[in-house]
Amino acid sequence: MTVLPKDIPGDSLKVTVGTANGKPGDTVTVPVTFADVAKMKNVGTCNFYLGYDASLLEVVSVDAGPIVKNAAVNFSSSASNGTISFLFLDNTITDELITADGVFANIKFKLKSVTAKTTTPVTFKDGGAFGDGTMSKIASVTKTNGSVTIDP
């Protein structure tokens, strides 16, 4: 049996954390987006972790974005102690894959008090994996961190 590389060099799934701005007490939304989904033969499963400074940001909610089908079954998240974990699994293993680019999740943060303008990162942590529509590992994932700026 011969195994051929399935990824064209330079191609990767792009996962990007967005940015937001606000004043202390505001609730802002930071999107997590996927790009080049079709090039990577869709997404059938993924789990990953984001870190944030809990002294500056309070997670209000984490909701599935419009590219997630049947989110009540296929999407899960949790947030505590400065870490947000995400889990997606197409429970049907074929019919509810992520097949389009767009917003995977929206994180709502309540901004805490600061004395001066502060930009705090929302960054990928170690761990996690992504699988394509056949549940094979997506070897190349380009992750881009985001941030939230609090301006009193």
Rank of each mutant, 00 (worst) to 15 (best):
M1V: 13
M1T: 08
V3A: 10
P5T: 08
P5S: 07
D7F: 14
D7A: 08
D7R: 14
D7N: 12
I8P: 08
I8L: 12
P9T: 13
P9R: 10
P9H: 12
P9L: 11
D11W: 09
S12C: 14
S12R: 12
K14C: 15
V15C: 14
V15F: 01
T16E: 08
V17T: 14
G18F: 12
G18D: 13
G18H: 13
N21F: 08
N21S: 12
G22Y: 08
K23E: 10
G25K: 10
G25H: 14
G25W: 09
D26N: 11
D26S: 12
T27D: 09
V28E: 10
V30C: 07
V30L: 13
V32Q: 11
T33D: 12
T33M: 12
F34K: 10
F34A: 06
A35C: 06
D36R: 13
V37M: 06
K41L: 13
N42Q: 12
N42C: 08
N42G: 07
V43S: 09
G44A: 03
T45P: 01
C46T: 10
N47M: 01
F48A: 08
F48T: 07
F48I: 04
F48K: 04
Y49V: 03
Y49K: 00
Y49F: 05
L50C: 09
L50F: 08
D53C: 06
A54I: 13
A54Q: 12
S55G: 13
L57K: 10
L57W: 12
L57N: 11
E58C: 10
V60H: 12
V60N: 13
V62F: 06
A64E: 08
P66Y: 14
I67Y: 12
K69C: 15
K69L: 08
N70H: 13
N70P: 00
N70T: 10
A72D: 14
A72V: 14
A72T: 14
V73M: 06
F75S: 04
S76P: 01
S76T: 02
S76Y: 09
S77N: 15
S78L: 15
S78C: 15
A79P: 05
N81W: 15
N81D: 14
G82L: 15
G82T: 15
T83P: 07
T83W: 15
S85T: 04
S85F: 04
F86E: 02
L87K: 02
L87N: 01
L87P: 03
L87G: 00
L89V: 00
D90P: 02
N91Y: 15
N91I: 11
N91D: 15
T94H: 03
D95W: 01
D95A: 06
D95E: 05
L97W: 15
L97H: 14
T99K: 14
A100W: 07
D101M: 01
V103P: 11
F104H: 02
F104S: 04
A105I: 03
N106W: 01
F109D: 00
L111M: 06
S113I: 07
S113R: 09
S113P: 05
T115D: 07
A116F: 05
K117M: 06
T118M: 07
T118Y: 08
T119N: 04
T119Q: 10
T120D: 06
T120C: 03
P121Q: 07
T123Y: 05
T123Q: 06
T123D: 06
F124Y: 02
F124K: 07
K125A: 01
K125G: 01
K125Q: 02
G127N: 01
A129T: 02
F130R: 02
F130T: 01
G131M: 01
D132K: 02
G133A: 03
G133P: 00
T134A: 05
T134H: 05
M135S: 01
M135I: 14
S136H: 08
S136P: 01
K137G: 00
K137E: 03
I138H: 12
A139E: 02
S140D: 03
S140R: 13
T142Q: 07
K143W: 04
K143C: 00
K143R: 06
T144D: 02
N145T: 05
S147P: 04
V148M: 06
V148A: 08
T149A: 14
I150P: 15
D151L: 15
D151R: 15
P152I: 11
